[in-house]
C-alpha cells in the first residue's frame, strides 16, 4: 500500500468519523444511538489498524485490537445489556430543536478547523485534516452531552468524546505510547463500570433517567430556597 493511498484511506475514515459524530447528534431512538456508537468504535479500530500498517508502528496494532475489543464490542454490549435491563431500549428521546442543533454543530466544526489553522502550516497533509476533524468530533460529542436529557445518552456522549480523543491521538501522532494507551483504556473501562452502577442507582432512587430530575434534588440546596 503506497503512502498516498494510505493517506486517502485515513482521510476517508476521518470523514466517516465526522459523519458518525453528526449522526449521533441527530438520533433520537436509544437503540440507534447505541448502533452508531458501536460503529464509531469499529471504525476507530480499523483506522488504528490502517495507520499501524502505513506507519509501521507495531505498538499501534495492539492499540487497534484493544480498541476493537473495548470500544467496538465490550462497551456497546455492556450498554445494550443495561438498556435492556432498565427497559428503555424502545424509548424515544425528544431532541431539542434539531435544526438549531445542526446549525450549531456546523459552526462548531468550522470553529475546529479554524483553531487548527495555525498548526496546519507546520505539519503534513494527513495530520492536519485528521487533527481538525478530531477536534471537531470532540466538540460535537460535547455538544451531544449538552443537548441530551437522559443519563444513558449523556454517557454515550462521554464515551464518544473518548473515542474522538483516541482518533486525535492516532490521526495526529500515530497513537500515544502503549503504556499511556493502556492506562487510558483501563480508566475508560472503570468509568464505564461505574456508570453502569450509577444507572441502576439513579433508576432505583429517582424512578427516572432524566437529568432534570437529578438536578432538581440539588436545586433546593442552592440559594433559591
Amino acid at each position: 500500500m503506497s503512502a498516498s493511498f494510505a493517506q486517502q484511506i485515513i482521510d476517508g475514515m476521518a470523514a466517516l468519523t465526522l459523519l458518525i459524530s453528526f449522526a449521533l447528534l441527530a438520533q433520537h431512538r436509544m437503540l440507534s444511538v447505541l448502533h452508531w456508537f458501536a460503529a464509531q468504535g469499529l471504525l476507530l479500530a480499523a483506522t488504528a489498524a490502517v495507520v499501524a500498517y502505513s506507519s509501521g508502528e507495531h505498538e499501534l496494532y495492539i492499540s487497534a485490537i484493544m480498541t476493537f475489543l473495548l470500544k467496538g464490542l465490550l462497551l456497546p454490549w455492556m450498554l445494550w445489556r443495561v438498556i435492556r435491563k432498565l427497559h428503555v431500549h424502545r424509548e424515544v428521546e425528544p431532541l431539542m430543536n434539531s435544526g438549531l442543533t445542526v446549525i450549531i454543530a456546523i459552526t462548531v466544526t468550522l470553529f475546529a478547523f479554524h483553531i487548527i489553522q495555525p498548526i496546519e502550516v507546520t505539519s503534513d497533509l494527513m495530520t492536519r485534516n485528521s487533527m481538525a476533524i478530531a477536534t471537531a468530533c470532540v466538540l460535537l460529542s460535547m455538544l451531544m452531552m449538552i443537548t441530551r436529557k437522559k443519563a444513558i445518552t449523556q454517557v454515550i456522549g462521554f464515551l464518544a468524546v473518548e473515542n474522538s480523543l483516541f482518533f486525535a491521538a492516532i490521526g495526529a501522532t500515530n497513537g500515544m505510547p502503549l503504556v499511556v494507551e493502556i492506562g487510558i483504556a483501563f480508566d475508560v473501562l472503570i468509568a464505564a463500570l461505574i456508570f453502569g452502577l450509577f444507572f441502576f442507582q439513579i433508576r432505583n432512587t429517582f424512578d427516572s433517567m432524566e437529568i432534570d430530575t437529578l438536578n432538581a434534588s440539588l436545586i433546593h440546596k442552592d440559594e433559591d430556597e
Binding site: F158, V161, L165, A191, F198, F206, S217
Partner: peptide, 19 residues
Amino acid sequence: PASIAAAWKYFILCGMGIA
C-alpha cells in the same frame, strides 16, 4: 438522592474537563 445527583454531576463535569 442528592448525593447520587452530586456524584453524577461530579463524574460528568470532571470527566468532560479531564477529557
